[in-house]
Simulated assay, not measured.
Amino acid sequence: MTAPIRVLVCDDQVLIRTGLTTIIDAQPDLEVVGECGDGQAAVDLGGRLRPDVVVMDVRMPVLDGIEATRLLAGAGVSHPVKVLVVTTFNLDEYVYEALRAGASGFLLKDAPPAQLLHGIRTVAAGAALLDPEVTRQLVGRYAARIRPAEDTTHDSPLTPRELEVLRLIADGLSNREIAATLVLSQETVKTFVSRILAKLALRDRVQAVVYAYRHGLVT
């Protein structure tokens, strides 16, 4: 039998935390290994328990969820933990900051339980939860802030074809759509995407979109 996905639940509201824990623990392939009510406790437990996924609220005492996510999953963390941000606040700024901090996905608390469970499994599998088109629109709103003044594409380790694929990812195209655009097979596109993520040390397509905007590859 495959080991269950180990989940840490972090929310400062006991009722919500208990509800999330109950929903997750009811699944045979998921297991709640810990729960806490503030961001600092999430960082401490995350480092000690090494869960597969942390379900993280944004607004919490001691340390907010954005900073806790940065400490658990951000750049430079030696053993990053995947974070799924779940919050009542449907503000672009929170979504943007959560992704910048290293979150792999973002859900609202009023999402149905099936969507939450799908999100946990998706993030645990190493995929981004946000739809590419949603991600493109979101990051696009902040392009002026995250894009550097100078063009840094000449420093890119990517080949011209890989840069082309990265631009299409940032434009919100799926692998199937990229394959049709470039007249390639979907397997070839998957290979290109894997190479891009590996060369740039990125975790998923969400980070690839942010990278593309930050380096001026998308206008």
Rank of each mutant, 00 (worst) to 15 (best):
residue 4 P to H: 13
residue 12 D to T: 04
residue 16 I to P: 07
residue 20 L to A: 04
residue 21 T to F: 04
residue 24 I to C: 12
residue 27 Q to Y: 07
residue 28 P to C: 02
residue 31 E to S: 11
residue 32 V to C: 06
residue 33 V to Q: 14
residue 38 D to V: 13
residue 42 A to Y: 09
residue 42 A to K: 01
residue 43 V to Q: 07
residue 47 G to A: 08
residue 47 G to R: 04
residue 48 R to W: 03
residue 50 R to D: 12
residue 50 R to E: 14
residue 53 V to R: 01
residue 56 M to A: 01
residue 58 V to Y: 05
residue 59 R to H: 09
residue 61 P to R: 06
residue 64 D to Q: 11
residue 67 E to C: 11
residue 67 E to F: 06
residue 69 T to I: 08
residue 70 R to K: 11
residue 73 A to I: 09
residue 74 G to Y: 05
residue 78 S to W: 09
residue 81 V to Q: 05
residue 82 K to A: 09
residue 82 K to C: 03
residue 87 T to Q: 10
residue 87 T to C: 13
residue 87 T to M: 14
residue 90 N to P: 10
residue 92 D to W: 11
residue 92 D to R: 03
residue 94 Y to F: 14
residue 95 V to T: 10
residue 97 E to G: 03
residue 98 A to G: 02
residue 105 G to F: 00
residue 107 L to K: 06
residue 110 D to Y: 11
residue 111 A to H: 11
residue 112 P to K: 14
residue 115 Q to K: 14
residue 117 L to S: 00
residue 121 R to T: 15
residue 122 T to Q: 04
residue 124 A to V: 02
residue 130 L to P: 03
residue 131 D to S: 12
residue 133 E to W: 09
residue 133 E to I: 15
residue 135 T to W: 04
residue 137 Q to Y: 14
residue 138 L to E: 02
residue 140 G to N: 03
residue 142 Y to V: 03
residue 142 Y to L: 04
residue 143 A to M: 12
residue 145 R to F: 13
residue 145 R to V: 15
residue 148 P to I: 15
residue 152 T to Q: 00
residue 154 H to N: 13
residue 156 S to P: 08
residue 157 P to S: 02
residue 157 P to V: 08
residue 162 E to N: 13
residue 164 E to N: 11
residue 164 E to P: 07
residue 166 L to R: 04
residue 170 A to I: 08
residue 171 D to P: 11
residue 173 L to K: 09
residue 175 N to L: 12
residue 175 N to K: 09
residue 178 I to L: 07
residue 180 A to V: 10
residue 181 T to G: 12
residue 184 L to S: 15
residue 187 E to K: 05
residue 188 T to R: 03
residue 188 T to K: 01
residue 191 T to F: 15
residue 192 F to S: 12
residue 195 R to E: 06
residue 197 L to D: 03
residue 198 A to P: 14
residue 203 R to A: 00
residue 205 R to N: 07
residue 213 Y to M: 08
residue 214 R to F: 10
residue 215 H to D: 05
residue 217 L to F: 01
residue 218 V to F: 09
residue 219 T to F: 11
